[in-house]
């Protein structure tokens, strides 16, 4: 993926690997949004794949970001939550204490972005409970069923000012 510099003020960023089952839910929601024909202007849709610390660079330059990712929240498969990135317990690992950059993910990227002072003012995470993050492409029925709802919620959010 060659990412283009921001053209809009709002980023909708999908994270995850569609080759690993429900981890591809972000890309599926993004596809819903692309096909909706209802996106307001100034919104960039980006499939961030499995980017590690470089996710910071995807977020840099936007005022507002929505991140779609699978997350194990111990809910029923397909259940989803909106979480503000600030104050969320994403469980960022201390990179100086036994973890390698191999294991850097969204939480570490957000911690780095915060330290650098380059994060958008508002970041919301749309977290979706997977049934299985396995070794084959394709979403489970339960997760597939929620993608339209998540896309609608994002469109609804996009239609409101960021401060609401």
């Amino acid at each position: 993926m060659v990412h283009q510099p921001p053209t809009g003020t709002t980023l909708v960023l999908a994270l995850g690997n569609p080759l690993r089952g429900d981890d591809g839910v972000g890309a599926a929601v993004l596809e819903h949004l692309r096909r909706s024909g209802a996106l307001p202007g100034q919104v960039d849709l980006v499939d961030g794949g499995t980017a590690g610390l470089e996710t910071v660079l995807l977020l840099q330059g936007y005022r507002r970001a929505m991140i779609i990712d699978a997350a194990d929240m111990r809910l029923a498969p397909g259940a989803w939550r909106r979480l503000p990135a600030a104050g969320s317990s994403l469980g960022s690992r201390d990179l100086s204490a036994g973890h390698t950059l191999h294991s850097a993910g969204l939480a570490e990227a957000l911690a780095l972005g915060e330290a650098l002072g380059v994060l958008p003012e508002t970041i919301e995470i749309f977290a979706i409970q997977p049934l299985e993050v396995g070794w084959a492409p394709g979403l489970s029925q339960q997760v597939q069923a929620c993608t339209a709802d998540v896309a609608d919620a994002i469109l609804d959010t996009l239609s409101r000012p960021a401060t609401e």
Partner: peptide, 28 residues
């Protein structure tokens, strides 16, 4: 004198941003 790249980012953000930018060019 820091434990990882995160405190380095606080102390010298221009250094970490330079590294991330160069990494991005390499990846692209």
């Amino acid at each position: 004198g820091v434990g990882s790249v995160i405190p380095l980012a606080t102390r010298a953000p221009e250094v970490v941003l330079r590294a991330l930018g160069m990494k991005k060019l390499a990846g692209d």
